[in-house]
Design a binder for these strands. Structure first.
Lengths: 126, 126
DNA sequence: CTTGACATTGACGCTGGCGTCAAGGCTTAC
DNA sequence: GTAAGCCTTGACGCCAGCGTCAATGTCAAG
């Protein structure tokens, strides 16, 4: 299939697909006229990328999953590198959550100073 | 005082101070030679900006606080606009935290699929 | 033959908050 | 006079993930 059809089926823009290719995440065969030619495997790669991005992964984070799929594995997380990224992302998310909770309580404290009675607790601070 | 001294005392770069001025957050008087000339009030404004940014506020978020201070209020959160920003930021932070928790549990679920026994819970899911 | 829907590459724009360099002017100290 | 250390404005760079425009090629339908 050509790039427009892949874009429609994957729910992304053609620009995004070219960008993924530029970043080395997907590689398209070329038809005789120079058009990119994709197959169902490419669709799976793009869907994998998008589902990872939907949970906050960057394109670089997605790379091991894509390579895992391309190496013939039935799923992108069947490789050690992918699992390592999962664990790292979990740690990153946990750090972000902790940071946000800390910042939330600081803001809530300031709001309480500025406007006593304005702030209703959320369980952030003990 | 000139820009270098203000920068040192506030713990920011001169570049940042010029940027804040360009964004209309602070306004410096000028000496006869064209140099920016700041006073203690300006220092307070910059300190306010930095403390707000430290908890995740953007420069635009900080604007009402700065204007509040410049209007003669003893503290930046003594104005209605500032309180409104506090409440909006609290809501934004809460939304971010919820989103992160949701994403964390999705990632954890995927990790559990990929590597059973890898994931140890964190209290995110019941 | 022409229109229209597809495709190509290349390049600039966007967001925020600056860092960094260029090219020069002011002031003081030696 | 000259070196050092401050200051000025202007402009490009950076990060990610594309959006958008330009100029042009390809191909099937009418």
């Amino acid at each position: 299939m050509r790039i427009g059809e892949l874009a429609r089926r994957a729910g992304v823009s053609t620009r995004a697909l070219r960008y993924y290719e530029q970043q080395g995440l997907i590689q398209a065969r070329r038809s005789a006229n120079g058009y990119r030619d994709y197959d169902e495997t490419d669709l799976r790669l793009v869907v994998e990328i998008r589902s990872l991005m939907a949970v906050g992964f960057t394109l670089e984070d997605a790379r091991p999953f894509v390579e895992c799929l391309r190496s013939g594995q039935p799923s992108g997380h069947a490789c050690a590198d992918s699992v390592a990224v999962y664990r790292r992302k979990l740690a990153e998310i946990d750090a972000e959550i902790r940071s946000l909770i800390a910042r939330r309580s600081e803001v809530a404290a300031q709001l309480a100073l500025a406007c006593p009675g304005c702030v209703l607790p959320k369980g952030g601070e003990p």
